[in-house]
């Protein structure tokens, strides 16, 4: 029981500590500014915490970044300028939606590239198949005649067996 109470006390201390660690929410003059703040917090990735937006993270750097976003918004900077400000410092990593640059072209172009390779292979296979079918069916004329004979060409059968009229 004593142990249980102690554990509960530790847990409460931890929870309280976390609650205090979360900084006071930013106040903005207009709801539009607050909405842009929330949106930016969702698209900027915390550099410390691998896969959390800065709006979701309790880490020190995420709090600093949120404070910077708020300050820059109040200074009247555009969303693009704020994203650029963060990329200048923390690299493309901070953008969940990375820009198209020399370094990221493969990220954007990769799927198209793979699709193009796939289509090229498909076209190649189809062409090769068509060609091989053509060569198989290309028999010499006498071979073709013999084949027709063996298969009993209905046209020839008509000529030979049913048309017995004498020429007039």
């Amino acid at each position: 029981m004593v142990i249980f109470l102690r554990l509960a006390a530790v847990w409460l201390a931890l929870v309280a500590g976390q609650a205090m660690a979360a900084d006071a929410p930013e106040q903005f003059d207009t709801p539009a500014l607050a909405a842009r703040y929330d949106a930016l917090n969702d698209v900027l990735r915390c550099p410390k915490c691998e896969n959390q937006a800065i709006g979701d993270s309790h880490s020190m750097i995420a709090a600093d970044m949120r404070a910077s976003v708020a300050r820059l918004l109040r200074e009247g900077r555009s969303d693009e300028a704020i994203r650029h400000y963060m990329v200048e410092r923390f690299g493309d990593y901070v953008l969940y939606d990375p820009r198209l640059t020399l370094r990221t072209w493969l990220l954007w172009g990769g799927p198209l590239l793979v699709l193009a390779i796939g289509l090229a292979i498909m076209v190649g296979v189809v062409r090769a198949r068509t060609r091989s079918r053509d060569t198989v069916s290309a028999l010499a004329p006498e071979e073709q005649a013999r084949l027709d004979d063996l298969l009993g060409d209905p046209l020839r059968t008509t000529n030979h067996s049913t048309d017995r009229r004498d020429p007039s």
């Binding site: 750097i61 910077s68 410092r89 923390f90």
Partner: peptide
């Protein structure tokens, strides 16, 4: 306040 650290892109 970590301002120079921030401008250097330091997060630890």
């Amino acid at each position: 306040d970590g301002t120079l650290g921030f401008d250097l892109g330091v997060y630890g």
